[in-house]
Amino acid sequence: MHWGKAWPWISTVARLGLSAVFLVAGGLKITDLDESARAVNAYRLMDYDTAKVIGAIQPFLEIAVGLLLLIGLAVRLSAAIGALLLVVFIAGIISAWARGLQIDCGCFSKGGDLAAGRTAQYGWDIARDVGFLLLAGILLWKPRTRFSMDGLLMGER
């Protein structure tokens, strides 16, 4: 098979995969915005009132990015915004790690401080987020995908 023909399919898998990541991450937080605020607060990067606002907005943004990727609208831009979010998350985790905080990253949960006796898994958290960043990278490079709104609007078959 020629690579040129395979790319739209590879990109489609990346698009749907990244979409699922954002939908799940947002969906897990949206049910309890108080928890989400505390997860942001646990990073100790801003005062609690700011953390509350960020904690409330973040899950809605994640779900929006997930839905945009799911339908495939402006894939390159959506992927770029997703990548930007991931870079912010990775930076947050690195900063928590560097300051020796013992927190749950709150990536796919509501986060917060870890109970005594549990150790933070920052290395794995970062590796996983870099993996997601790679998916976004594929879409930035080759944004043409199957079953997308973009394809429909461009009149592709």
Partner: peptide
């Protein structure tokens, strides 16, 4: 589509803020 994406994100952010 880019305008639509930005619009969707702004609306999502506003919903989050509104809910709070």
């Amino acid at each position: 589509t880019s305008v639509a994406v930005v619009g969707v994100l702004v609306i999502a952010g506003l919903i989050g803020f509104g809910v709070l």
